[in-house]
């Protein structure tokens, strides 16, 4: 971020109403000191001045106050907009980074067959430039051609997989009850958790209607959150799973644990890929970022609340 050096603003010195972009740079003291100052002077002089002059002065002070309020309001609005666009830019740059990483992988995958194709066609060109095509050369030409066909197939398989991958990214929406989606995952974790003294409390809303969602994808999210909750509890403890309506057109799933909680400095990093507080080998640091990705694709949002030492609660809100 650029630090601006304080400078004299000719527009403000002249007391002209500033245009919006210039107003942004105007120092804040003008509003904080200038306006009360002018008001004080006006009040004091109103005591000694004749009434008509005092009224004019009062009107002038009032309009100055109104202008100051408007300027401050617009400044708040601008900074809010800036913050929003910075957030959007951050998301965009993270996406770009992921795409960059993926394309590097694809480029590498395709470069290898390309290199072989180039080599083989070079060799073929060389053979065909010979004055006479001997039977041995012909056999070699056939070999090279077959190799090229093989490598083209390899490239085709790569692009085919990529297409499948991008198609697989689209969720398939089915009507299903949240409880039916979650319960198998809860049972799976419950059996293992019970052995270690961790119990699972179900707090499903029985009135909740079925929602439209990608069932196996959501199961992955639930299983991940449950495993996370389980791993966050060092000894005995409780995991609470709940479902609730969240407004007219959304539902919320929450997984809360009585574990170690999340340190405030880690809260902003918790959904980042490869971020983990678990010892090496226990977690990949991909679980929560994967949850975040899936929930995003399902049109929902995932949030976390935590008090260190008192556990954490992850909430997934989804469209119905």
């Amino acid at each position: 971020m650029k630090a601006e050096t304080p400078r004299a603003d000719p527009a403000s010195a002249a007391g002209e109403p500033a245009s919006p972009p210039a107003g942004k740079n105007r120092p804040l003291w003008l509003h904080l000191v200038g306006l009360p100052g002018v008001t004080a002077v006006a009040v004091l002089s109103a005591m000694v001045l004749p009434i008509p002059l005092a009224v004019i002065l009062a009107l002038f002070t009032a309009s100055l106050a109104a202008w100051s309020a408007a300027a401050l309001a617009s400044r708040i609005r601008t900074s809010e907009q800036e913050r929003c666009s910075l957030d959007a830019q951050l998301v965009q740059s993270q996406k770009l980074a992921a795409i960059g990483e993926m394309s590097a992988g694809i480029a590498h995958e395709i470069n290898n067959p390309m290199a072989i194709i180039a080599q083989e066609s070079d060799w073929m060109t060389h053979l065909m430039s010979q004055p006479q095509v001997t039977p041995e050369n012909l056999a070699e030409l056939r070999d090279s051609l077959a190799e090229i066909v093989r490598q083209v197939d390899r490239c085709k398989a790569i692009t085919h997989n990529l297409l499948n991958f991008s198609r697989k990214m689209d969720p398939i929406l089915q009507q299903e009850h949240l409880e039916r989606i979650m319960e198998d995952m809860v049972l799976l974790v419950e059996k293992e958790a019970k052995l270690q003294g961790v119990s699972i409390v179900r707090d499903y809303d029985p009135e909740l209607a079925a929602i439209q969602t990608d069932v196996p994808l959501l199961r992955q999210v639930v299983l991940n959150l449950l495993l996370n909750a389980f791993q966050a509890i060092p000894g005995q403890g409780t995991i609470t799973v709940s479902t609730r309506p969240a407004g007219a057109d959304r539902v919320a799933i929450a997984v809360a644990d009585t574990g170690a909680g999340i340190l405030p400095e880690n809260m902003s990093k918790i959904f980042n890929p490869f971020f983990t507080t678990k010892p090496p080998g226990v977690g990949t640091g991909l679980g929560l970022s994967m949850c975040h990705g899936i929930v995003d694709r399902l049109g929902g949002a995932i949030t976390v609340e935590s008090e260190p030492g008192r556990g954490a609660k992850f909430t997934v809100t989804l469209p119905r």
Partner: peptide
Amino acid sequence: LTGHASVESGMRGMSLGAYDYVL
């Protein structure tokens, strides 16, 4: 379907594209 609850294998199964993982 699984007789022994292994969360780890459940995670693997679900991420490989299983529809469900049932005890």
